[in-house]
Design a protein around this nucleic acid. Sequence first.
DNA 1: AACCATACTCGTACTTTGTACGATGTCAAG
DNA 2: CTTGACATCGTACAAAGTACGAGTATGGTT
Lengths: 223, 223
Amino acid sequence: MATATATTQPAKRPRMTRERVLAGALELADQTGVADLTIRRLAEALGSKPMTIYHHVPSKDEILDGIVDLVFAEIDLPDLELDWKPAVRARCVSAREVLARHPWAVPLMESRRSPGPATLRHHDAVVACLRSGLSLTMTGHAYAVLDAFVYGFAIQEAALPSAGDEMDEVVDDLVTDELADHFPALHEFATGRAMQPGYDFGDEFEFGLDLILDALEARSHSE
Amino acid sequence: MATATATTQPAKRPRMTRERVLAGALELADQTGVADLTIRRLAEALGSKPMTIYHHVPSKDEILDGIVDLVFAEIDLPDLELDWKPAVRARCVSAREVLARHPWAVPLMESRRSPGPATLRHHDAVVACLRSGLSLTMTGHAYAVLDAFVYGFAIQEAALPSAGDEMDEVVDDLVTDELADHFPALHEFATGRAMQPGYDFGDEFEFGLDLILDALEARSHSE
DNA sequence: AACCATACTCGTACTTTGTACGATGTCAAG
DNA sequence: CTTGACATCGTACAAAGTACGAGTATGGTT
C-alpha cells in the first residue's frame, strides 16, 4: 500500500537544489562563522547527508564562492536616476550594512577567484554610475579608493569585539597601567575618546565616506 | 659506545624556539599561502616533527597571531621628527608594501583577536604621530579612514591575479562579447583604461592616499 | 666527575574535516 | 510493471590539529 503518489506526509524530501544548499550555507555562516561551516553541519542543518550536497555543488570552494556572491546580491545597486555622488554614497552605506551583517564575507573575497554573476552586475552598475559624472580616469580612481575604504572599514568593524561580552574583557586588558605606561598615545585615545559615552566607531564610516566623496568631486572639477 | 657527549656531527638539532617556529611559519606562509601552512609542513621545513612545535607554541592559532604580529613589525613606524602628514604618508606607503609582500596577512587580521606587542606599538606610534598635528576627534577620524583605506587596498591587491600566469586567462574570460553585452560599463572600463599599456592598479594607492590626507588636513583647519 | 631535575623531542593515536566510490532508492514515461 | 535517469546516502580514506606519555639531552649542584 501507499506508493505515495504525491508528497504525502514525510515532508522530509524538499528536494535539494543548489540554491537551497547555498541559502543554508549562508545562514549557517552567519550563525556560526565561516570557520565552523562544514559540509557535515550544513547537511544536518538541511536535514540531509554530506554526500547529497555534493550532488548539487561540486566542492566546498564553490559553496564559498556562491555565498560571497549572495552577499554581493544583497547590496543595493546605485540608483542611476540620481547624481553620481548621492547614488554612490547610498550604495556604499548599503555595502557597509551588508558586510556588517556578514562579517566573514570580506576576508573570503580575497581568496576567491571567479567573481559570481551578482558580483559582476554590481560592479558594472557602480562603474556605470561613476561614469555618469566622472571621466574614465577619475572613475578608476574613485572606484579604487571607495571600495578600498568600504572593504577596509568592514574588516575593522568585523575585528571589533562584537558587543558587550568580550568588550569589557579586552578593554580591561588594555586600559591597565601596562597600556598607560607603554602606549601612552593609545591610552590617551582610548580613555579620552574611544571609551567616551557618545563615541561609536561606526560613525567614523560616514565621516570617511563623505570626506572621500567630497574630495573626489573637487578633484574631478579641477581636472 | 658513542653516548655522543656533545653536538658531534648530526648538526640536526638547532634547538627549536618560539622565534624559530614563527619565522619558519612566516616564510612558509609567504611561499605557499596561509592555507597550506600546516603544522606538519612547518615541522618538515624546520627539520623537525609536528609535536616538537607544540612545545614552543600552544596552538596553531597562536602561530597565526604570531606571524600577523611579525608582519606588523615590518611596517616602518612614523617618523616623529616630521609633520604628521608626511610622516603618516610614509608609514602608509610602507604598510602597503609590507602587506603586498604578505598577501595572506590582511584577511587573517580580521579573525585574530589579541593584538601582539608589535601591533600595539605600531598603533601607538601612529596615534602619537596624528596627535602631533590633529585634535583627538580628528585623530579618531584620520585613524579610521586611513587604516580602512590601507587594509582595503591591500585586500584588493591581494585579490588581483598575481602576475602573468592567470591574468591572461581571467582577462580572456572577461573581455569576451559576453562581458561587452551584459556589463557594458565594466567592459568600457576594462578595455579603455585597465588594460591600457600605462595602467597600473598599484598607482591608485598613492592617488587615494594623497586624496585622503589632503582632505583630512583641510577639515582639520576648518575645525 | 657523577647525578638528577628540567626542558626538549617525537612516536602513536584519536578526532574532525573534505570528498571519492558505488550501492540503494525514487519517479516519470512507456 | 518495467526501465532508465537522477537523487540520496553509507562507507571509507587521506590530511589536518593536537593530546598523551615515553624517551633524550642539558645545565646546575654536589
